[in-house]
Structures are given as structure tokens and as C-alpha cells.
Design a protein around this nucleic acid. Structure first.
Lengths: 350, 350
DNA sequence: GCTAGCACTCCGCGCGTAAGAGTGCTAGAA
DNA sequence: TTCTAGCACTCTTACGCGCGGAGTGCTAGC
């Protein structure tokens, strides 16, 4: 099925492929030779174009929905287009500024900024947008505070380099004084501040608790607070813009629509989708089958990393395979930059 | 259009109306006289039923999609069914227990419990479920803690009777010591604990700040923390189950689907929908036009209150007007009870 | 007041035809 | 060799048509 790989297409044939992809992205209609010669200045006749199209098809870049229809890009057609043929785009200054402004209006809290950015990206991209929280593997512990509520209960707050993270209510089996909490908090802060969160072990905590001659139970409570800080935003995904997909002709099929809505509802799957994009540096584009989603061959995903406090999060746009890759890459990159910037501003106070 | 109001239908006619609504809810097909006599034991012939149907139509309880079709309930047909005709249902003990169990597995945090309950309700109801956070008008202030991070920044945490509420990062224009924060926190806690949050005024705070001879700026910072506690979960709505609507034949129209997906995405509208249900005690059902949603005449909404720490939140199911009202009311009520219970357990530690 | 019968209406479905878009192929021109 | 023009062919889509079925309202009789 697939044409000879390594046989990179060049010149006119490449231009024709690019044009087919471009036109199909714009119109969602299979592209025929006549359309190409009329709308684009190819300098050759429709018959010549037909020959090229036939070759591109045998090489696996294009497919025909049926015998007497125009051509549609295949996964590898899109892939070639994205990797080699399309013109990179950049965001306009105005648009860039608008994004910055909108993010600046949002609250100071990490998750609210992310939510705001997600909505913005969904709106601007006209597709499904989702953003995963910064990966916290590399986050540093900054501050813990045990807050006394009653003689047998309290709240533990853990602040990390990525912002305020976790709060967890707890109960104790016996009376504890507010002073105990204060002393323990101070001791932990003195000892552990700026330690990578993953390096904080039960024994370190136990040592501190023991030195203050406090009950061992507090050890478990503190560890639970660290644990919840470590995992709190893990797998947390904000998403927006699902309704945009209804405009796309490829989703007139209700089964597809159902599949994709379920995927958006299940954060787990969204998270898995970007998981391997995390291993590579810079923007990543996944096309069709590359996403390995059952029943959803005609989706694509654009993913761009952003940074916050040493952690890396992912900002993604999910849409039909027939998406304007150039524009969306520019949009995602620009938004990721703005988001990184905004989060740096917030964290600058630490 | 509307039939004579006050003229309450009784006996056989009422039974026929109930049966039409019941059957239509089950099948989504207009109901004809033949279906009624065959599937339900009415004891009269189809012709007699036709006469009754014609009357029910002139009285406004039923409508005909077209001349030679069966009948479909109108808003007021559904209304009568829900208010007077349908059999109230209750949840099975098993189902009830399963809900409790699932909620117990969730985390201890208010918002995560709510999210869990929302997903559960969406799954069990096969419709869109959404839950608004408890209204915080009546919430009591419990505890504030200003946490020192650096000499010019900190975090303020406010705990209320509804659970840990708000964290807000702040910066100061000049150096502040950790002790200042501790003293101020203690003074505020001593003075204001268990005050309704809305009664806390800037002057109360200013007084406390002044007594400790601290800088006025702290006053604004503290007030901002209170403000954010007051508004943090306001308008916050968790939703789940949008993809369930795709199964309903009334949403094969893509425009409708689009409208409703947008509504689900915009928390604001969802919040408005339940706003007046908040004024009434107990469960509330809104049918079709009563929701006053443009382009969406055939939706209904079941809303049931739940309680947490003196606040009242709303648990809602949104679906096609042709929804199984009895079952969903039972389901929503049962889930609301479980949720109230669960939140009471969590808060019992205060 | 109920029932049986009947003529009527309207929707939905299947079918066949026609139009249109696009192809591949072949023969000839540059 | 490479391109072009022409042509026959294929396949989809849209449209019109007729038919069957479901359900009604009405009327006459029990």
C-alpha cells in the first residue's frame, strides 16, 4: 500500500501534494485535478496534474474515497505536508498581545490560569483544547504549614515551586496543640526547603518528628500532605471547546462524535495522548493513526510544552485530521509562551 | 392554545394522559390510539381513546407533530404528569448503597467529592449531570493562616465551615516577619472565628491590624483572602455526561446538540438555570419552555438541593424533556442525600 | 356513552433516472 | 520524452414518484 519510503518527493509533485492538502484542509472536499488547475497557478494542464495525482496515490500520500472522486491526503500525506511542505506561520503581534492580556486578567492561582488559557485556546483554535498541569517530578518543596483547627484536627498546606499545591484535612487520635504544629512546620521548613519533592522520604520526616519528641502519627500526616502535593495536579487536565467539533463535517457521524466526547470527558485518555509528546523537546504533531485511538482515525493532535517553576506541562489542540496545522502550531506555540511568561510572573514572588 | 385551566382532568382521561406520557418517554415515538389499547389495559376501544385524545389535545396537554401521527405530550402535559399523575419512585437499597460507597472512596476535599458525585450522577442518569458548590452566603469563617514564604511574599489560607476554601498568594511592598503573620493570624482567629463570612467587614480587620500596630497594607491582603474565600466556589459548577445526550433521538439535530454543548461548557448558564430552584425548598422540575433557553424547548431539568456546613448546593440532571422523571427524581434525591451525608462526615472533624 | 367501520391525510421509504464531478487512457503535439 | 486534449467510463448524489402504513376524524349503529 505504502509507496517507496525514502523516496522523497520534490519539485512540482511536492507542490501539488502541498496544494491538495492545503485545499482539502480549507474545503473538506476531495480535491480534483480541475480544482487544482483553476484555483492554483500550476502552469500545466489538468491531465498532467492527474498523472501526478495518480503517482502520489500509488506512493501512498493520497487516497481516493471512491473511483470517481478527487483525492484526499492520507496520514503520510499530512505527515509530509507538516514536516516538509507547509509554510511555517507565526502569530500576529495583535493576536499575541490579546492572549497576553487575557491571561493577565486571570487569577493568580495556577489552576485558574490554566483553565483560562484552555478556554482561550479552545476559542481561538476552534477545536478542542486541553492543557495538562506542569509535571511535578522536578518541583521543589518550598513550605509546609500545619494549621490547627481543633484539638484533634487540622489542615496541612504544602507550597511548592509550582505554586500553592495541596491542602489536606486530617484528624489525630489524641490532642495536639497549635504550638506543636507551629514547631513541626518550622522544623520541616528549615530542614527541607528547596528539596526536590520526590526526594523527601518518610525517614527524613520521621527524624524531624522524633527530634521534637512529637507523636509518630504526625509523620504519616505530613507524608500524606507531601504525597498529595506530589500527585494533586498529576493527571489533571483542563479541557474546553468540545462543541467546536460539531462544525466539522467529519463529525456528522454520531458514533465518532460520541467517541470523542467520551475521550474528552475521561481525563485519563487525554493525559495518555500527550504522554509521549512529553519525552520530546518542542512542538509535536500527531496525525490520525499515530494517535492509536480506536474508531478515531481522523483526528490530529498538536502539542506544545510550556514551563512553570521547573516543571513542564503540555498544551494541546485536538481536532480533525484536516486541521490548519500551520496556524494551530503558531497559536499553540504563542499561547504556550504567554502561559510560561504569565506563570513566571506569578512565581517571581517566591 | 392552552386549554381551560383549573379544569383538572380526572379518571380515565387522566389515566390516558399518564399512559401517553409514559409510553412516549419509553419509546420516543408519537403514541396512537392503537398502541394504547394494545399495550395497556384500558377496557375501552381505540375509537373511545381517540375521542379522549382529541379532547386532551384541545385542552393543551398533547400535540400532534402532524395530522396523521400519534400524540406527543406538551409542556403542560408533562407538567401535569410530573405534578399529579406519575407514580413516585424510590431508589433500591442496593443502588443507594453503591452510591454511598463510591462517594466514600473519593478524596476528602469538597471539590473532589463534588466532582466524583457529578460523574456518578451522569453515569447513573444517562444524562448531563451538574452540581453547584454549596452557596456560601451562610458559611462561617473558621480559620485564617498567613504563611510566610519570603520576606516580601506569603500565602493566605482561609478555612470556612464548608471546608478549606481559598488560598491566595500575595506580595508586600516592604519586609514582613513570619511573627507578624502569626500574630495577625492568631488575632483574627480569636476575634472572628465562627462569624458569618459575609459579616466580616474591612473595618473589623483594620481594627485588628491597627491594634497589632501592623501596616495597613496587610488589611487589604487579608480582605482579599476573605473575598476570594467568599467567591471561590461561587458559580463553580462541575458537570459530566454530555456524551449521553448523543443517544437521545431528539439530539440528532446538530444545531440543538451544539447549543446544549455550549451551555454545558459555559458554567454561567448552568448556574443561572438552577438559580431560581434555589429559592424553593426541595426538589424542583423544570420542563421545556420553563427553562427559557433559546432554541432548546425540549430539555428538562431536575434539581435537588444538598447541604454542607450550613450551605446549600444544587444537584441537577439536564436531559431531553422526554426524560424518566420518576426515576431521575429518585436518583437525584438519593444522591443528594448521600452527598449531604458524606460532606457531613468530612466536616465532622471541625 | 361506547364501538365498529371507513375514507382520508400525511410521512417515510425504495426505486429508477439524470446530472455532475472526476477519473484513466490514448493519441497526438511540443 | 513530456505535456495536452479528448473521450468513454465510473461512481455518487439529488430528485421525483408511487406506494404502503400508521393514525386520524367522522358517522352510523349498538
Amino acid at each position: 500500500m505504502k509507496g517507496s519510503p525514502g523516496n522523497e518527493i520534490e519539485g512540482r509533485k511536492a507542490y501539488i501534494l502541498a496544494t491538495v492538502v492545503y485545499e482539502y484542509i480549507a474545503t473538506a472536499e476531495p480535491v480534483g485535478s480541475a480544482t487544482l488547475t483553476q484555483k492554483y497557478n500550476l502552469g500545466v494542464s489538468a491531465a498532467t496534474v492527474r498523472n501526478e495525482l495518480a503517482e502520489l496515490e500509488t506512493e501512498g500520500y493520497l487516497v481516493q474515497p471512491h473511483t470517481s472522486a478527487g483525492r484526499v491526503p492520507s496520514d503520510s500525506g499530512y505527515r509530509t505536508y507538516v514536516d516538509r511542505l507547509m509554510q511555517p506561520e507565526a502569530m500576529g503581534v495583535d493576536e499575541r498581545r490579546r492572549i497576553c492580556d487575557e491571561l493577565r486578567d486571570a487569577s493568580h492561582e495556577l489552576d485558574e490560569v490554566i483553565e483560562q488559557a484552555t478556554k482561550l485556546l479552545g476559542r481561538l483554535s476552534n477545536n478542542v483544547a486541553f492543557i495538562t498541569a506542569p509535571q511535578r517530578d522536578s518541583q521543589l518543596f518550598r513550605h509546609i504549614q500545619l494549621i490547627w483547627i481543633s484539638s484533634r484536627s487540622g489542615v496541612a498546606i504544602v507550597v511548592t515551586s509550582l505554586g500553592v499545591a495541596a491542602q489536606s484535612l486530617f484528624e489525630t487520635a489524641y490532642d495536639v496543640s497549635a504550638d506543636d504544629f507551629t514547631h513541626l512546620s518550622n522544623a520541616l521548613n528549615a530542614r527541607l526547603a528547596n528539596t526536590p519533592l520526590r526526594d523527601i522520604s518518610p525517614s527524613l520526616v520521621a527524624q524531624t518528628v522524633a527530634e521534637l519528641k512529637l507523636n509518630d502519627d504526625l509523620c504519616a500526616i505530613v507524608m500524606r500532605a507531601f504525597e498529595s502535593a506530589r500527585s494533586s495536579l498529576q493527571n489533571d487536565v483542563a479541557s474546553a471547546g468540545a462543541q467546536n467539533l460539531l462544525d466539522q463535517p467529519e463529525f456528522r457521524d454520531l458514533r465518532k462524535l460520541r467517541s470523542i466526547l467520551r475521550i474528552v470527558d475521561e481525563q485519563r485518555t487525554l493525559y495518555d495522548l500527550v504522554a509521549d509528546a512529553m519525552t520530546t523537546e518542542g512542538p509535536s504533531v500527531k496525525i490520525g493513526r499515530e494517535l492509536a485511538l480506536d474508531d478515531l482515525d481522523d483526528l490530529s493532535l498538536v502539542t506544545v510544552p510550556y514551563r512553570s517553576g521547573g516543571g513542564v506541562g503540555m498544551l494541546s489542540i485536538l481536532g480533525p485530521r484536516r486541521m490548519p496545522y500551520g496556524r494551530l502550531l503558531a497559536l499553540a506555540t504563542g499561547t504556550a509562551d504567554s502561559l510560561t511568561q504569565r506563570l513566571a510572573d506569578i512565581n517571581a514572588t517566591d
